[in-house]
Write a protein that binds this DNA or RNA. Structure first.
Lengths: 334, 334
DNA sequence: TTGTACGCGTTATCAG
DNA sequence: CTGATAACGCGTACAA
């Protein structure tokens, strides 16, 4: 690898002058600057970030540890957002993801510390409480798509409650009167928050208790979650006769479309359908296309890095939880 | 940050002895080793990889540059595989992904070089030829899920031809006699290879030309690919009356299920369905569950790092293209 | 505007 | 088995 000294020799100056040019120090004679830049070009010099890091205090490296986030189609956008934002701020992201059978979160954290990462973003694959080991408090930390059960750590989460509130309001505003909510496993955070938002909206419209229904389409058997959408949807449609159905995720809506198809009910005409996730191309491949509340993963990723950098610089020290708004992608299903 | 010298002082030895312990040099008195390990523990010492890198020649860092791979649900597994393998080999992956509006591949490559990455893996989001700038030849390089048009660079790609051949053979072995292949845009690499594999299998079974049909379900309009599965499937079923349909991807199979549902044709009984991708939970959420040929993304990711490390060490210098086998996930749709 | 001396945290060499 | 001492590539302080 070519070093700053070789460039100096080539350009006929001391290595310090080269260092100045590399670091955009204006106090260099234009003539020399040109010579040096030419030498850099010719030799293909690249600054050695490791050497720089030894000398300077800041590494400009941010660790990104994920609980299989980069594995989960739904939430890779968190990573993309984090990376984009990091680039904008002149930081490099070191990505590590936890494999259940492989290194633990603490191992990965050690890696980050050995690379002198200035801070760490910890991401989870779905919105949940996560109890991180205390080692995570040794440097600035932001949790994304998850949060500390004791609220003692900075966190970025999707505003599931607002999401459910908004979409329910839209359904009601369009005149739907009997809404069935096919929610996810009621134990998970998102399901609880969405239920709250759903109920708040209904209350605002003074909807009677017998004019809505909430059911779970996930059953947990021996720790494994199994999907029972078709069976539940069938029963709810028969017994409750909803004029609109709100689904816990796009895959639920997908199964629902099959149930409706078989019953000869036309989505968007005989019955309204809405959903959460706005996952990839699923909403668009359905006919009619599915209106779905997007989880703001990309924005959350960006926000996590912004927040972390503020923590590092001390500009912002609050450990408050930050909720990111969810937007309905409005299509043809209601 | 605590340094090796502070540990040395605490343990009452010279810093070089600490260095020996950190690097597992056996020539240290047991008594001292214990003392030093205790000091390391107490002070929470973490070796400074940057400083080490300045002195040593190897950085143990591998760059992973992706053409939005980590954005694409289908192929994040490449990243996961690469990361797992890197961990096993004691390497750290630095992940960068290209945003069309953001830094170019060459910018990211520079980043890698500044971090003194020992080599670079370049991944694409779908199997395609990619013409990389010549700068990419400045260090060991492996392309994954893509390849150099001139075959002058090491590449790892899925064996799409074998995949199509195998699944077609399985269909024929199960007694299906009139197969329709709803292929992807015929311009893309995977579509061409799969068509070849499909035809080879038919030939082996001496299937007549009028006993099969191949259609594209993607139309390219002004550079944008639009999906016309439903319309094509409808026509093919009416005109050709296949007893089995092979789909270019799971999303095509998904649309097909709707078409079949509407026509009252039962998948797996009245008609067989097979597909490519084995994408996430889609095949399992369909009823009956979809038999799909998995693209071996995880294995490809692993293979890319293995290959790169061999290139770096000089153990393997061939730039040959490596094809990774695809396995059918056999379920209930045929 | 430019160069010299020094230090960052580590590994390598070699004498003790 | 241990510890001076040099070196890695670069940034900082200060002098020229």
């Amino acid at each position: 690898m070519v070093t700053i000294k070789q460039v100096a020799k080539r350009a006929g100056v001391s290595f310090k002058t080269v260092s100045r040019v590399v670091n955009n120090d204006p106090t260099v004679k234009e003539e020399n600057r040109v010579k040096i830049l030419a030498a850099i070009e010719e030799l293909g010099y690249q600054p050695n970030l490791a050497a720089r890091m030894v000398r300077k205090k800041n590494s400009d490296v941010i660790g990104f540890i994920s609980d299989e986030i980069s594995t989960t189609p739904a939430s890779v956008d968190i990573l993309r957002g984090a990376q984009d934002r990091a680039w904008e701020l002149g930081k490099t992201l070191m990505v590590f993801n936890i494999d259940p059978k492989k290194p633990s979160a603490s191992n990965l954290l050690e890696q980050c510390r050995q690379h002198r990462a200035e801070g760490v973003v910890y991401g989870a694959m779905y919105h949940q409480p996560v109890n991180l080991p205390i080692q995570f408090d040794q440097q600035p930390l932001v949790m994304v798509n998850c949060f500390d059960p004791n609220q003692q750590r900075a966190a970025i989460i999707p505003d599931d409650e607002q999401a459910a509130y908004d979409v329910t309001l839209q359904l009601l505003n369009k005149g739907y009167k009997r809404i069935a909510f096919l929610n996810l496993n009621p134990e998970i955070v998102a399901a609880k928050l969405r239920l709250a938002g759903f109920l708040t909206a209904l209350k605002e419209f003074s909807v009677d208790e017998d004019q809505y229904i909430v059911e779970s389409v996930e059953k947990v058997v021996e720790g494994r979650t199994i999907d029972i959408t078709r069976e539940v949807a069938d029963r709810v449609i028969t017994d409750f006769k909803p004029d609109a159905i709100l689904c816990g995720k796009d895959l639920v809506a997908l199964s629902l479309y099959f149930v409706l198809e078989r019953r000869g009910l036309r989505v968007g005409q005989d019955i309204g359908v809405a959903s959460f996730d706005d996952w990839d191309c699923i909403p668009q491949i359905l006919v009619p296309s599915l209106s779905s509340v997007a989880l703001p993963y990309y924005q959350m990723g960006r926000a996590s890095v912004t927040r972390l950098v503020n923590l590092i610089s001390g500009k912002q020290t609050s450990l408050a939880t930050e909720r990111v708004k969810c937007q309905l992608s409005s299509r043809e299903s209601f």
